[in-house]
Amino acid sequence: MTTVPQPSEWPAQAARSRPPYLSIVTTQQPRGAPPNGDELSSWLQAVASRQDRQAFAAVFKHFAPRVKAYLMRLGTSEAQAEDLVQETMVSVWRKAVLYDPSHAGVSTWIFTIARNLRVDHLRRKGLAIGADADEGEAEALRDESPQPDELLSTREREIRVREAMRQLSDEQAQIVRLSFFEEHPHARIAQELGIPLGTVKSRVRLAVNHLRRLLGALEP
């Protein structure tokens, strides 16, 4: 399969896939650093307010390859992952008007869309592993009038979870990552950590409880 150049993953990515001397002047380097949360949010708002295709393309280029990576980590076949990426990104277009920056950051919002579509897909195929039913809840929360400090708290939450992950030990961070990004997290955690399957649950519990304490300590 041919690769679409992804503007958001240079130089590191480029360095891996090209001879070193070429990676310095990569032709696929449009505007420097990957987009930050505010840029992503403004692109999404441009999609919502004026069906801005340019902005949609930018959101697509940043997220679609990551959503595909996420789905494939969760055991989705390549072809199926492509289809679910399509569904996810078309949903992003359609639901852009519902995106509420006071509720979640763009990456969080797109994560929940992809997660829900994957779960729906598994259920449709009778492969039910996961489920989620908080669409309705999100709907309800959206009806509340947005408070300025909610916007702030969303931003703080996005920062807080990243900081808490950074403070976790490598092993516990790995456990948390695998809990999200693995088809059979427990089996994989046992394998990666070289521990018996029977002890994985308590290791996950320890890691998540530690994460919880860190998040609590980071709260304003």
Partner: peptide, 11 residues
């Protein structure tokens, strides 16, 4: 919501 934000960060 925090754990979903974590999912977003991982994505």
């Amino acid at each position: 919501r925090e754990y979903e934000a974590l999912g977003g960060a991982l994505l």
